[in-house]
Design a protein around this nucleic acid. Structure first.
Lengths: 186, 186
DNA sequence: GTCTATAGATGGATAGAC
DNA sequence: GTCTATCCATCTATAGAC
């Protein structure tokens, strides 16, 4: 049941946003009364936090697995781009929530999630540093470029349409070629 | 006074988000009672719409001016990147609102703003097409690459810090070099 | 573990005096 | 053009029965 509530919340937060979604709407979508939700979650924010934790953890795990399986900065960057984009398409709803509902978290929870996001960014920045050290990437501003890459790959979840012209692998391929060309030292 | 209300709303929508901001909070920040707001705006949504219209119009105007002053696809793309990034830093608060509060608009207003955004995107896509036709840009997926470029340039407003290491021109320069390198045919 | 009922606060918006 | 006062809906959350 806890999972049914979470799924309803994901759909509603995705469609209407966190603050525009009420506990009674979540309850209705789940098929129970709103007071019953409080048996599983003590506050509305806890539902949001649960979604954040799951999403961020799964994203971290996916990246770790893909990075470990690749050798050399160029291949590792390509693996990271594919992984990030495909995750943000497959988990489109949660990705949009994780990307736009940070303001729904109070200080303590906010810090926890920001920490996870920072760790993730640092992994990408390390791959960029490796590439510069290996001489396969041109010398660049690691911070700005890492934000640029993550922004364009994250934002895919806002415009990608499953019924559209391109598959998720197509999009990952197009972005990957563009980014790696921009990074290349030669 | 209408402008004072708008400025308070911009600060609050930026800090807390549209749905988490109440009319009474806007009134308090403006130094009037909430009923007085309704003499200037008939609904809360109208305040948001006013912010959207102003921001989008100013952005459109800025791009038009900069594009008209540049010749050749490469220079025109560079002008667009600088223009877009510097606008999103100088008007950081409004840019974040315009980028994240679309769900606060009801159907009719939503369509109006989406139309403006689409027009803007098409201008960027036209520059990409020019570049491919001129042979200065590699043959690429215009739609995906235009979204990629706009995503990374728009998102600058979420991480840029005025007290930070880099000026807005620095950031525009770094992104511009990266993007133009990724686009170049040679 | 879900229910009915309700507390207690706050939301957007309006009426009418000045 | 701003004020006081208020309407009515809805919000998050809790109490206590079953």
């Amino acid at each position: 049941m806890k999972n049914k509530i979470k799924k309803s919340a994901i759909n509603l937060f995705y469609k209407k946003g966190y603050f525009a979604t009420s506990m009674s709407t979540i309850a209705k979508a789940t098929g129970i009364r709103k007071s019953s939700i409080y048996h599983h979650y003590s506050t509305k924010e806890e539902i949001l936090l649960d979604i954040f934790r799951t999403t961020m953890n799964d994203l971290q795990d996916a990246l770790r697995t893909r990075l470990d399986a690749a050798a050399g900065a160029r291949e590792r960057m390509q693996a990271a781009i594919y992984c990030h984009i495909i995750f943000h398409i497959e988990r489109q709803k949660e990705a949009i929530i994780a990307d736009s509902e940070l303001r729904g978290l109070t200080a303590k929870n906010y810090k926890e999630i920001i920490q996870m996001r920072d760790d993730y960014e640092k992994k990408i920045q390390r791959v960029l540093e490796e590439g510069v050290a290996e001489g396969v990437f041109v010398d660049l501003d690691i911070k700005v470029i890492s934000y640029a890459i993550l922004s364009m790959c994250t934002n895919v979840c806002t415009w990608f349409k499953k019924s559209g012209r391109l598959s998720k692998e197509d999009v990952a391929g197009i972005c990957s070629v563009f980014i790696l060309k921009g990074l290349a030292s030669s």
